[in-house]
Design a protein around this nucleic acid. Structure first.
Lengths: 233, 233, 233, 233
DNA sequence: AATGAATGAGACTTCATTCAT
DNA sequence: CATGAATGAAGTCTCATTCAT
């Protein structure tokens, strides 16, 4: 379901008594995201979820078998939404490796991905011991895909640039750390630290580490996406 | 409460029926940490807490007014314990700025701080929307102290080294991001990512950014803490 | 509804969307019997019933007003099915009284009556306090008919045989007790107690009580009738 | 717990906040019996049970882990109460075999055992498919004990009397059938069939089958228990 | 006539909190 | 001080019933 449709469903609650199964499921997932972002996992009940969805309490066990399952499907949706964002960008055939790496990096700070609601969700699942296992099971495949794509791209870049003493895995580790760490800081100190600043810091790190491929961004300016190819050799 | 008392309470749980108020409180905070680490915030009940503490269920509302209050006091204790660690190290009078920065950085990956139990706790509180506000209130002062100390130290280092185009705030932001991001990865993928590796990545980042002050660490080896002063100019 | 139609409905469940009202009702009653036999009254829901019937959940409240009503109609059907069995056998005009009594007795242990599904049903309704009143209302007429027929037949037999000190009501009471008690034992211990054995025990009781009319059954170990009189004081 | 204490607990609901664990359990079992007798298994809820017990809803899961468990314990209590009744009577050392058999038979129609509440319970558990398995597991041991005791006693009686062509197992089967069948008739037609009449019918059956040991009871009179030994040879 | 998504009352259960001991 | 039985609000889930299609 596209976000537009989801929005529509949310705005126009009365979709008729028999909205399609998929529409209802998405409506409930959206409501779950909203509720967890606001009340946390412990504070999210069937009542808060169905309240946001504008539906009756009994419907969750009808479309999802249990609260547990609803939460897992919500997590899965979130992971896939994130993954789709950079995967789609990577499909452009004319992308040079550096542009690909930037696509992955910038996807983390895209407003569609990196917003209060989504970040709340991620850290809610990270934080709740009971869901960390579920997280690993559901998300590790997607995490691994991103990791391996990054490694491959980095190896190409290192080889192209003839960089000495650089290790693709170490750089990838740094990047993953920065993504997560910046997400957390954006979540906790939204007034002091912005999506834009996070992106800039990552760009600077790349310019400092792989200078032949990534030019230092202008001070205070965020690089346009169209310019990415410029950085390619 | 001093750390000694805390240790005592943890070791010798059965302190007799008339343990001092402070001992009982610490006993319950320790049990809360243990329970949240194992079961998460949602899975932690008065029963799990008092079970770990070896006390009766009625005692919590006696020493803390409510579960809410117990959790807040637990968070406060955790924040202070972390802060004490690096604050104590910084009090050594003969520390050069680079050593001070390393002290702060390495404190994050000290086994006493960076262990499964503590990390679980931090991310539990980060993740639960209802506690993020409490977190900010309790921890921002401590976070700010660390931030300002880092900034000051970094400014000194940049001036000393005559580094061009470096900004203390940007480096501090990177470091804070790495601390948090690495913590999260250690928590979620404990098999794939270690405390030691995290520390090394941070050291490398410093060596790459401020090369006159931080030598590149030997491959595969973790730098000894005693050697910190060596890195100073 | 005739038994033929019932059979038809049971065999050919898919009767098309426009099956007659009666066919649908019988289809649902059959499904109810099946469900109660398997899951009990408490475990029988509209979903289990319509599942067995291969129909949609909404249909019950269309053909029966409520679950309550469906259960009552099911009970009524069961009672009538049982009654038909022995009533039909009694209609043979050339039956002597002893044969009539045996017809009633044996009807209880006929495979069409005395099977797991039916016994489950009877005892489900007996057991559920809320349905005992309904049972009495629906079944007492049928029970009474059987009782009075038995009494009449017994009186004829006693008179014919010139039996001394025998009371038709007492014998009828014994027989009714044996029917019910054996049914229960067949239901609960199906491996240890069979329909056949039950029938034999009843036959023996009749041979022992009314020896001139009922010969001792052949082999299978049963006391000879000749010996009974010897035991008299 | 003696019945006196149980009664006391029921009458004097406020036993203090901390009645002994056993007292509370028995209070709840009594309330469960009362509720199932009145509303059936399907109609018995935690609310009806705790309502009868005069306690709060939450207490059941405190003393029993679940409704399921409460029901099983209730069934077990009932089975043991019945068993105790005849087991105790059999312990009298001066009992001749015929008296023993009568003790078992009459225990079934003792007012403490054979009353509306208890019979409702038995048939509730028999009738509910989900509990028949539990019944067998819990009660079969007790049933078997009674069966084997009866067989043994019957064999002695048959040998003593030199009865020809009698089989202990067949007589025991008849007796068990009569017990259950008469119980059911007492439950369903309490106005038409009494405990006393049932007992008399069983006595007559014994007198008819084993005349040297059991004298025919006087018409309309129920034999006193003290007289049992008289019937022994 | 038939479907099945939706509703919402009510079931079981959990658990923070209270309070007599 | 400490205990733990008891309370009852609130949570999840079930399911008879309704009603637009």
């Amino acid at each position: 379901m596209t976000e537009v449709t989801a929005k529509a469903a949310r705005t126009n609650k009365k979709v008729g008594r028999t909205a399609s199964r998929e529409v209802r499921r998405q409506q409930l997932i959206d409501a779950t995201i909203e509720s967890i972002a606001k009340f946390g996992i412990a504070g999210t009940t069937m009542t808060t979820v169905t309240g946001y969805a504008g539906l009756s309490i009994g419907i969750v066990n009808f479309h999802f078998d249990s609260k547990e399952n609803l939460f897992e499907e919500t997590l899965r949706y979130l992971a896939e939404e994130h993954c789709e964002t950079w995967r789609k960008r990577l499909q452009s055939p004319d992308m040079v490796p550096a542009a690909q790496l930037l696509a992955i990096a910038d996807a983390h700070f895209d407003p569609a991905i990196c917003n209060r609601k989504n970040l709340s969700l991620w850290f809610a699942f990270y934080g709740e011991a009971g869901y960390r296992a579920a997280y690993r099971e559901l998300v590790s495949e997607i995490d691994t895909e991103r990791w391996e794509t990054s490694i491959e791209v980095l190896k190409t870049i290192i080889a192209e640039g003839g960089y000495q003493g650089l290790d693709a895995e170490q750089i990838a580790t740094m990047l993953e750390g920065l993504y997560d760490g910046f997400w957390l800081n954006i979540l906790i100190y939204p007034g002091d630290f912005s999506r834009e600043e996070a992106k800039q810091r990552v760009h600077e790190y790349l310019a400092q580490t792989l200078p032949k491929h990534f030019a230092a961004p202008a001070k205070g300016a965020s690089p346009c996406q169209e310019d990415h190819s410029r950085h390619a050799p």
